[in-house]
């Protein structure tokens, strides 16, 4: 952002298409991740979110290897990453259904394998590592029009499913066993949540990166949980918090010329700290 150091935030948004795309991307990703974070927190899926987001690294390396790293191949890379994350999510789901393995073992295994595969593929073809750095820590200014279209489509798909399955997802998050006993398909919602998680990570990874996206998938939900006693308000507070922190993070990163993904995570962390103090004082 060095060329814009003297430009105000709104002026930059008015002048530059990439700034408008960055703002739209931050808001979409901030909102989408916050919706998922509610289920991640209630279903204790923080570690699996972490596992799938790191799996995205393997998928991205595979995509870059297959399609190269120019702007036109960005959509193809995203699709390969989505397929890879989905496969890992399903594999974690299947392996963790084995009686003798706990889910965290399955996650730990696939997490490490996917990262290793990514590094292996990078080494194999001597890929230009700057591209991978973009995916590891995110680069919101590199978000293209195609990326934004993909993000919007994925967000619409996921929000639509969440709206349709709102009550079923509540019961499943509360108690999968009792949801099953009442006649709902717990297996379906188990895989539906994993799929949504994988797709959300794919939609977000270019903005925040593989390493930081798991924070987006935990902090808004955890913050809302601290101050809310009902599911509906928890969801609303998480989404407002996610969008607001994404905007504030982008604004601050522009002001101080620092990486956006990291700034949003720090903003969210500060918000979480405030909520924690409020909750501690109230209880």
């Amino acid at each position: 952002m060095s060329q814009m150091e003297h430009t105000g935030f709104w002026q930059a948004v008015a002048e530059f298409a990439f700034m408008r795309q960055a703002l739209a991307a931050a808001i979409i990703v901030g909102g989408l991740c916050s919706v998922l974070s509610v289920y991640v927190v209630l279903r204790r899926m923080a570690f699996i979110g972490n596992g799938i987001s790191h799996a995205a690294f393997g998928g991205i390396a595979l995509g870059l290897l297959l399609f190269g790293s120019d702007a036109t191949s960005s959509l193809a890379t995203s699709l390969v990453t989505a397929a890879f994350c989905l496969a890992v999510a399903v594999a974690i789901g299947l392996v963790s259904q084995h009686e003798r393995l706990s889910p965290d073992s399955a996650i730990g295994i696939f997490f490490a394998f996917s990262m290793a595969l990514g590094v292996f593929l990078v080494g194999l073809r001597k890929l230009y590592t700057a591209d991978l750095m973009t995916y590891l820590f995110g680069s919101i200014l590199a978000v293209t029009r195609d990326d934004l279209i993909l993000m919007t489509a994925l967000a619409a798909l996921i929000m639509g499913f969440v709206a349709l399955s709102y009550k079923e997802l509540i019961y499943y998050s509360f108690d999968p066993h009792m949801a099953w006993a009442s006649g709902l398909s717990a297996t379906f919602f188990h895989y539906a949540l994993l799929t949504m998680l994988a797709l959300t990570i794919v939609a977000s990874v270019k903005v925040v990166g593989v390493v930081l996206v798991s924070a987006f998938l935990v902090i808004p939900g955890a913050t809302a949980r601290l101050i809310c006693v009902r599911f509906g308000t928890m969801m609303a507070v998480a989404v407002v918090f996610g969008i607001l922190s994404a905007f504030l993070g982008l604004y601050t990163s522009h002001l101080w010329n620092v990486p956006t993904g990291a700034t949003i995570v720090i903003t969210q962390f500060l918000g979480f700290g405030v909520a924690w103090l409020v909750a501690a004082k109230r209880d």
């Binding site: 209630l42 349709l164 509540i170 509360f174 066993h177 009792m178 006993a181 709902l184 006693v229 599911f231």
Partner: peptide
């Protein structure tokens, strides 16, 4: 069940919890 496996920490009131029992017969969507 013998002991509810869900944690009572879930953000729901008693009424919210009872209403969950109607979800399955209410139908999807």
């Amino acid at each position: 069940p013998q002991r509810e496996r869900a944690e009572a920490n879930f953000p729901a009131t008693a009424l919210d919890t009872v209403v969950m029992g109607t979800f399955s017969s209410l139908g999807y969507g």
